[in-house]
Amino acid sequence: MIEIEDLTVIYRTREGKIRALENINVDIKSNEIFGIVGESGSGKTTLAMTIMGLLPRNGYVESGSIKVDGDDILKLKPEMARMVRGKVISLVFQGAMNSLNPLLKIEDQVAEPLLIHRSTNRGEALRRARETLELMGLDSFTWKKYPHELSGGMKQRAVIATAMIMKPSIIIADEPSTALDVITQAQLMNILKELQKMARITIIFISHDFPLVSEMADRIMILYGGKPSEIGSNRQILSEAGHPYTKGLINSVPMISARSKPEAIPGEPVNIKNPPAGCRFKPRCKMALDSCGSYDYSPKIIEGDHMIFCKMFEGGKDGRST
């Protein structure tokens, strides 16, 4: 239902143009949890902001389209794009601690999308806000509180309630659980999963935390340096990973039961301001070849929709033999 085609997003900076996202082609299906994994600078937040139409002032879409149910939301006029935000697609930010206005009561903030989109009057909006808060496990004690009076987990639930209140078809959750403790984080993940089943919404779940994403997502896209590395179902990524970066991610996860020690991926994350030619993972890749420097990111498609963006798999040949 979300078809992203050939998306390239650029930031203008004093040092020149930065290509924050390039060659992004992916279809996100209805009612799935689609995970996006990447370290900082991978372009995962840029992707979220592009879908929301909230790129910072110095960012713009150079090419490509994002179709939601067939309509390209990048081509909407500002006023129409505003109608999509919060209503069709809503966002749960990283650092939800700060997503709430310190001067307004919780219930007013949760009810706000209803009033912004003129769905109903204030009284009804408040009633629905309380209903949604309750659904999120926040009882009447919290409704009239100010953000600073609530715990981090409670604030995060209020933010999710706000994102839910318009019954959107898509929720983008960008690092929703950073800065929360492990238990609160687990509770939150359960809430998101239940919501997704109950309300039949599509969730785009974005995180740097590979194990967390692999626990949540039906399908996963791995980004590296603004470009895709691998896209596939949960099973395909976890047990049939092809890309060296994906394999590195899997090996770097400490498994309590496993005997093998976790291995970190050597090297520094890519400098997006000055990326290497060809495959961006090349400088850190154990299996890199000279020809990786001219890789053009044409994917190798394996069984159905498992895509690997690696020179070794290009054209179906095993690159190692050359």
Partner: peptide, 26 residues
């Protein structure tokens, strides 16, 4: 620059609304 301003944008609020309701009071 605060996150709640961006969050208000993601709710679909107009520029004028964000400015008057969220930014100016803060």
């Amino acid at each position: 620059q605060e996150d709640y301003i961006n969050f208000a944008k993601s709710k679909g609020a107009s520029d004028r609304y964000i400015l008057n309701k969220h930014a100016v009071p803060n």
